[in-house]
Design a protein around this nucleic acid. Sequence first.
DNA 1: ACTCGGTCCTGAAGGC
DNA 2: TGCCTTCAGGACCGAG
Length: 294
Amino acid sequence: MPELPEVETVCRGLRPHVVGNRILRYHQFRENLRWQIPFGIKDKLEGSIIEELNRRGKFLLFKLNTGNILIMHLGMSGRILVSDTSKEKKDSKKPKEMGVFFHTVKPTGPHDHIIIDFSDQKRITYNDVRRFGAIDIFKSEIISSHQWLSKLGPEPLTNHFSSEVLKSSIKNKKSYIKTALMDQKLLAGLGNIYACEILWESRISPFRLCLKIDNFECEVLANSIREILRKAIEAGGSSLRDFKKVGGDLGYFQNSFSVYSREGIKCKRDECGSSVQRVNQSGRSTFFCSECQK
DNA sequence: ACTCGGTCCTGAAGGC
DNA sequence: TGCCTTCAGGACCGAG
């Protein structure tokens, strides 16, 4: 689900709730998401304070005061929601089982897999229908040493990325440019939606081979990448089916899509009389305008 | 070394 | 109504 703008939106929404906050309780309701959740994660998290929350590509990085770093990926359908348990109404009709008041936490909705309670009664819930998400915890001075991060390409919105960097990473590739844009080793954070949108903006066909993209086109592409991502973040990401911000609100960049999910609809360029096509490319739907994109 | 298709998982939508 | 197929924002893995 979430590409860079959605993960950035989650990161910004979550940050004021969790940074400086102490983790009181960690609860998980299954032992795996995409992969096994590491044993011992509960003990490493409980009692520690979150010092920083950052994003790298599509990963969220929670830096703890213990030196541990919690790393999360939302996969296709992962969501994080924040709630305030002090405001929830007490369930007075709840039977007192055997007169014992064990503090048990149960998932509140289907596909709630992890709940983290903080000392100020804030709660974050990780929900993931398809369970392609992942979570790990590790300790290292060098964040990029983690295997999920070590092969990631540059961040598109920093000065580690430029048209020259893009050019040098694609110049010998035989694959389609669209496939390359979605390759996290090349560039961190783009997925199917934004790859389609960026190519339309750049007027470049998704079927162009990387090695045939010239310097000028790389410059156009690099500018579109920065521009589209910046606008999508500003809009709070795109909400199609699963994505919601941490407070439950929707992003609204989907209203600005030029091609994605617009099969059969007229191309957004006024001077273009053509309509958006959808084709299968390397197993993913590609939306594009064959008139404007060459 | 590089590239591509299959695969994991659940649920929504559409055709018949 | 119900059953079946297709599709979905990701990315690892193994075959070629």
